[in-house]
Design a binder for these strands. Structure first.
Lengths: 260, 260
DNA sequence: GCGTGTGAAACGATTCACAGCA
DNA sequence: TGCTGTGAATCGTTTCACACGC
């Protein structure tokens, strides 16, 4: 019987933890540990806005102002921040620099994370040059692909390595975070090799479900899926059915609303 | 006073509806209308797997099998599907073709959605050629960018148009879905123009918060943010405190777990 | 028997509302 | 006075458990 594994799926779900087996991490004393996932997903947004504010010279923000800027409710922002401790001043607001520091610490902004990208197709190539990675402390240290036409070529000063050498590359660069931009069929096999080599976080752009051991965190980003969700909402907007819309016979009358 | 607007934020939240004003949609009788957002986010995944199954010749799936394949609990899958009606057979499972059809209808898979991409940088270029779009019914009908070096060039047979002509392009192509891959600073201005021109769904790759009228649905995908969330989890893994984190020499014995 | 469909319970996340402190 | 920090209320989602029909 194989050890505990989880399937990682939706674009908002990272999978880790929870092994029914031993583990039972010892509620470590130091920094307050795990925040609610929903909060974790928002912290980067707050952090980005704080960086922006501090660059503009703002020294203090109220929860109201910051919340407005990032598009959440003020109460939610306060609750989120309260999970990390009390870094605000009543009647005043939050010290931007302080909050920035605390938040950055929580998110590991100080670290320089080496990242390996596997699959240098359309998307992988774009990710290799994406400035949003490097600007947030992620260094692309290797590009990996099986295509002989690509191997040896450089993107942004990084040479593309043969997929056959994946193990070597991961070991050499000591990367624990990997980005998967391979075709769906290849994704699981690559993931297995990455994980075996010590990678514990995977950002998966392939449209397939990965099965990984519990200790590995996977986040899936499926661009096609995102558009499909938009299409879903499109379908039930404007009353004009797009013609070719076979269903939708009657009632899409927006607000049918004779009340009561 | 401008009409109701919402800020759209996290990668899992689409914003629409909810206007505190009138609306109050009348619980329309016909086809079961809006599904819970969490369900909507999963339907594309189910659909993809069903397509796969049907291509393999499978004719029936149980909730258990399908759930396993897409990485959710069987109960969740059944509840999700139950929102669209009863398309399964008790004691047997779901007819793949039928379910595929129903689900496809719900997600508008029959439609051919024209899509405009604004911002042909690294990412925009990749998205322009991304097969995951076209294969799911989304046709890239225009690429728009202000860079004179790009205007007139072609990607995948589509010519890049001047951002100045955005309105013309949207009008001509009748696109209601747009993809934003501009720098963060430009995103809001472009979004405003898109919305004014009749676009009602935006997939936003820019790392900034968009403010749009209520009727417009926005989904944000922030790739840097995704990595940051992974980094957060990385930070609280392996007990070895970081120290530039080479850890992993020892314990990666796949199943650390001497059971019990 | 077996697997769907579904109410009910459990859980988590968001919102409200207010006490407490600068 | 004003804004934070937080219990309590609300809302949505997931999970459980079982009745129903093939």
């Amino acid at each position: 019987m194989p050890p505990t594994e989880t399937r990682a799926s939706s674009s908002s779900a990272g999978a880790t933890s929870a092994g029914p087996s031993g583990a039972r991490a010892a509620e470590t004393v130091s920094g307050g540990s795990d925040l609610p996932p929903a909060t974790v997903a928002r912290l980067p947004v707050y952090l980005r806005e704080l960086n922006l504010l501090s660059r503009t010279g703002v020294e203090v923000v109220s929860s109201g102002a910051l919340a407005e800027a990032v598009g959440v409710g003020p109460a939610q922002l306060r609750k989120d921040l309260s999970h990390l401790g009390s870094y605000g001043t009543r009647g005043v607001g939050y010290d931007v620099a302080l909050l920035q520091a605390q938040l950055g610490r929580e998110m590991g902004s100080a670290h320089e994370w080496p990242v390996v990208i596997v699959g240098i197709g359309n998307l992988g190539r774009a990710l290799a040059g994406y400035s949003g990675f490097s600007s947030r402390g992620f260094h692309i240290v290797a590009l990996v692909d099986p295509n002989p036409d690509l191997i040896g070529r450089e993107i942004n000063g990084i040479e593309i390595t043969d997929l056959a050498d994946l193990e070597v590359v991961v070991a050499r660069t000591k990367a624990v975070i990997a980005v998967l931009a391979t075709p769906a069929e290849a994704a699981q096999a690559v993931a297995d090799r990455l994980v075996y080599q010590g990678v514990t976080s995977i950002l998966n752009f392939a449209a397939s479900v990965l099965t990984v051991p519990d200790r590995v965190t996977v986040r899936k980003v499926d661009l096609g899926q995102e558009l499909q969700i938009l299409a879903y909402h499109e379908l039930r907007k404007g009353d004009d059915p797009v013609l070719a819309g076979p269903l939708t016979d009657a009632a899409l009358v927006r607000s049918a609303g004779g009340d009561s």
